[in-house]
């Protein structure tokens, strides 16, 4: 009888010890998690799923996407910033990481992260159904000016990047939209397809496949230059509205992660970015790859933190 019990005790102690042991070997000792603070199917999710698959080759361990949607990304960012700084839990940081702290009281700012690499920089856009009542951007804006609050514009989360883009755009053109928050770009596009809202504020690759299929069309493109995939869609700048805004998406580790681990991660994800498989899926998704190393990425985050801080303060007035 006693032996049986002893066996159970040993079994338990052993299993606890094996957990503790796992941390003291060379990085990476186990799978690397990337926290995506948005629902599956949104742009951030799609991009990092593709990148994760390519990065596995260069890291030698599986790279797993963990979706933590909600609060416009605040839940995922908070969890990412508070994660153990051992390089096994990374966060896909995107523009809102520099916006959210100005809007709500968050437990993080960009300073709680160690930048690793910037992967993507995309323009934002408004999509509408192909059979909507507005033929041109001018008609759309005129209608919005005459009927304030009547055009419903979906976004991927309250206070998120595309929400702010929509807010900044309505301020620029002097209109008023009715902003409806969804938990991620995917659900907002579903609602647009079903005709429950009039437009969505998104950035590629969200909705691209529906634009290709002719179900949706790009009403307003907030870019400096036209999209490679849709060369005949003009930017709003070409149509006389001086407005361009985009979203960047990169990877960061919690503050305090050792520099040698950051370097290892950066090198692996840099190689993954150059991987032909990832290049191809990036092209298929119509996303705009824009590499930045840890130093430049950190500078970009610091700059945008200031910029959006000013914008949010202006808007709250």
């Amino acid at each position: 009888m006693l032996r049986k019990h002893l066996f159970l005790v040993f079994f338990f102690v052993f299993s606890v010890l094996s957990l503790v042991n796992a941390n003291s070997q060379e990085f990476p000792t186990k799978e690397v998690q990337i926290i995506v603070p948005y629902a599956p199917g949104g742009a951030t999710d799609l991009i990092f799923r593709a990148l994760a698959a390519s990065a596995e080759k260069y890291l030698g361990k599986p790279v797993i996407i963990v979706n933590r949607p909600g609060g416009g990304g605040a839940i995922g960012f908070t969890e990412g910033a508070k994660a153990k700084p051992d390089g096994h839990t990374l966060t896909s940081v995107i523009t809102p990481v520099t916006i959210l702290p100005h809007q709500v009281s968050t437990a993080f700012t960009y300073k709680d992260f160690e930048p690793i690499i910037n992967v993507v920089s995309d323009p934002s856009m408004f999509l509408v159904r192909s059979d909507c009542q507005w033929k041109t951007l001018k008609e759309f804006i005129d209608y919005a000016r005459k009927n304030p609050g009547m055009i419903t514009v979906g976004n991927s989360g309250a206070g998120g990047g595309v929400h702010l883009v929509a807010l900044a755009f309505e301020k620029t053109v002097g209109a008023k939209f009715n902003h409806i928050p969804f938990s991620g770009g995917g659900p907002s596009i579903t609602a647009l397809l079903g005709g429950h809202i009039h437009a969505v504020s998104v950035s590629p690759p969200e909705g691209i496949s529906h634009v290709q299929a002719g179900k949706l069309k790009i009403m307003a493109l907030f870019a400096e230059k036209r999209l490679e995939m849709f060369p005949d869609v003009p930017t709003v700048k070409e149509q006389g509205i001086d407005f361009a805004m985009g979203m960047w998406r990169g990877l960061a580790a919690p503050k305090g992660t050792p520099p040698e681990i950051i370097k290892k991660l950066h090198d692996a994800f840099k190689k993954a970015m150059d991987d032909p498989a990832f290049r191809k899926s990036a092209k298929d998704m119509a996303i705009n790859l824009a590499y930045l190393g840890p130093l430049d990425f950190g500078k970009l985050m610091a700059h945008d933190h200031e910029y959006y801080g000013k914008l949010v303060r202006e808007m709250k007035k």
């Binding site: 599956p40 199917g41 999710d45 799609l46 390519s54 899926s281 998704m285």
Partner: peptide, 25 residues
């Protein structure tokens, strides 16, 4: 539609994209 409604389909979506297949209409 190319939109995953549940976590298992979201994982499949990722796998498809890597092979250059974009689920959608």
């Amino acid at each position: 539609l190319g939109i995953p409604f549940a976590p298992p389909t979201a994982i499949l979506l990722g796998a498809l994209l890597i092979h250059g297949i974009i689920p959608g209409p």
